[in-house]
């Protein structure tokens, strides 16, 4: 994708309420995301996985059975019980059903999010201290 195309894409987003646009073209996936909170633009450009790559195919297959943990409220995402404390979980951590993964805060209401299954944390999708929307994916867990 050309720089000019990117610029145009960003420009399109600027004066709207749209926060995220994803375009796939010529084997390239471009995602333009406007972080609502900080109001800046974030551009991610990934090469799409080659369909013939066996390893990648496996990954895609794995994603299908991954469990996505989503936020039940609008709030702020915290990975640890207090700013000085260790995170509840890291990538690669084995978690048990009922184990606390994070806290979402809204107006001093602390909502501890627990894992619904036994599994391994594959992805952490939000940064500590960032705002999250209702239903926003937070973690991806590979069930054991």
């Amino acid at each position: 994708m050309e720089l000019e195309d990117l610029k145009e894409l960003i420009g399109l987003l600027k004066d709207t309420d749209i926060t995220e646009v994803q375009i796939e073209k010529d084997g390239i996936k471009v995602k333009v995301k406007r972080d609502k909170f900080f109001g800046h633009l974030e551009v991610q450009q990934h090469a799409l996985p080659e369909k013939k790559d066996l390893r990648k195919e496996e990954e895609i297959e794995t994603e299908g059975r991954l469990l996505t943990v989503t936020s039940p409220i609008v709030g702020t995402f915290y990975r640890s019980p207090s700013p000085d404390a260790e995170p509840f979980v890291e990538i690669g951590a084995r978690v048990k059903k009922g184990q606390v993964l994070c806290i979402i805060e809204a107006m001093k209401l602390m909502n501890e999010i627990e894992s619904e299954i036994d599994g391994v944390i594959v992805r952490i999708l939000v940064e500590n201290g960032h705002p999250v929307e209702y239903g926003e994916p937070l973690f991806m867990i590979d069930p054991i």
Partner: peptide, 24 residues
């Protein structure tokens, strides 16, 4: 004081901390 501090002018008289257990 938003959201739920109990204040007397700019001093804190009381605090409220709510913790919930929830699914979606």
């Amino acid at each position: 004081k938003w959201p739920n501090d109990l204040m007397v002018s700019d001093r804190k008289l009381g605090g409220i901390l709510t913790e919930i257990k929830a699914d979606m």
